[in-house]
C-alpha cells in the first residue's frame, strides 16, 4: 500500500480549521477551570465541614472519573433534567469541571508544600486569616502552582480530542470526517497526531524549563 501524501496536502486546510476549535476549547476550559478550581481549592481549606465535604466530593467526582464519562453524562444524561446542551458546550462544561477538580488539587498541593513556619510567622505578626492568605500564603502558592498548571493545560489540549466522540467539531473530528470520505486512516491520523505534537511539545518543553528554574526555594 502506498503512503498517500496527496490526501494529506488536499485536506490540511480542513484539519487546520479544526485546530482553531481545539485551541478555543482548551483556552476556554483552562480559564473556567482555573477560576472554579481556585475557588474549590480555597473552599476545601475551610474549617467548616458543611462547606468542605460537598466541595471535596465534587472535586473527587471530577478528578476520579474519566472525562468522556463526564461528557456523556452532560450531553446525554442532563436532558433528563431538562438541560439540553450542544456538543461544544457539553464538552466545554465537562472539561471545565475536570480542570477545576485538578486545579483544586494543585492548589491544595501548593499550599501544603509551604512550610508551616510561614503560617506561624504571619500569625505571630498579628495578621488575621484573610491577611495571611492574601499577602503571604497565596503569592507563594501561586509560584508553586505554575508548573503543574502548565502540565494541566497541555493535558487539556490533548483531551479536547475526546470532544469528537460526542460529535463536537475540532481537530480530531475534522480528521474523522476526512477519513469517512477518503478512507485513508493511517495518513490522516498520523498528520492529526503530528499537529497535536507540534502544539504540545513546545508547551511541555517550556514547562520543564519553568520547573527547573524554580530552585530558589519558594
Amino acid at each position: 500500500m502506498k503512503f498517500d501524501f496527496d490526501v494529506i496536502a488536499k485536506n490540511l486546510p480542513y484539519l487546520l480549521s479544526g485546530v482553531k476549535f481545539t485551541i478555543a476549547l482548551a483556552c476556554l476550559v483552562i480559564i473556567l477551570g482555573t477560576f472554579l478550581g481556585v475557588i474549590f481549592g480555597i473552599l476545601k481549606l475551610s474549617k467548616n465541614r458543611l462547606i468542605r465535604y460537598p466541595v471535596s466530593f465534587i472535586v473527587e467526582l471530577t478528578r476520579d472519573t474519566p472525562i468522556i464519562m463526564q461528557m456523556f453524562f452532560i450531553f446525554f444524561g442532563l436532558p433528563a433534567l431538562g438541560i439540553r446542551l450542544n456538543t461544544f458546550p457539553s464538552a466545554a462544561l465537562a472539561m471545565s469541571f475536570f480542570a477545576a477538580g485538578n486545579t483544586a488539587e494543585i492548589v491544595r498541593g501548593a499550599i501544603d508544600s509551604l512550610p508551616t513556619g510561614q503560617f506561624d510567622a504571619a500569625k505571630s505578626l498579628g495578621m488575621n486569616y484573610l491577611q495571611m492568605m492574601i499577602y503571604v500564603i497565596i503569592p507563594q502558592a501561586l509560584r508553586r502552582m505554575l508548573p503543574p498548571m502548565m502540565g494541566l493545560f497541555t493535558t487539556l489540549i490533548k483531551d479536547t480530542s475526546l470532544a469528537a466522540i460526542i460529535g463536537a467539531f475540532e481537530l480530531t473530528r475534522a480528521g474523522q470526517e476526512i477519513i469517512e470520505r477518503t478512507f485513508r486512516s493511517l495518513e490522516i491520523y498520523l498528520v492529526v497526531a503530528a499537529i497535536y505534537f507540534i502544539i504540545c511539545y513546545p508547551l511541555s518543553y517550556y514547562t520543564r524549563k519553568v520547573e527547573k528554574g524554580r530552585v530558589t526555594g519558594f
Binding site: P115, G117, Q118, D120, A121, S124, Q140, T216, F218
Partner: peptide, 13 residues
C-alpha cells in the same frame, strides 16, 4: 507579642 523562630520564617517572595 513578637516572635522569632528557629527557622527564621522570613517571607521569601
Amino acid at each position: 507579642i513578637g516572635m522569632v523562630f528557629q527557622q527564621f520564617n522570613l517571607f521569601p517572595h
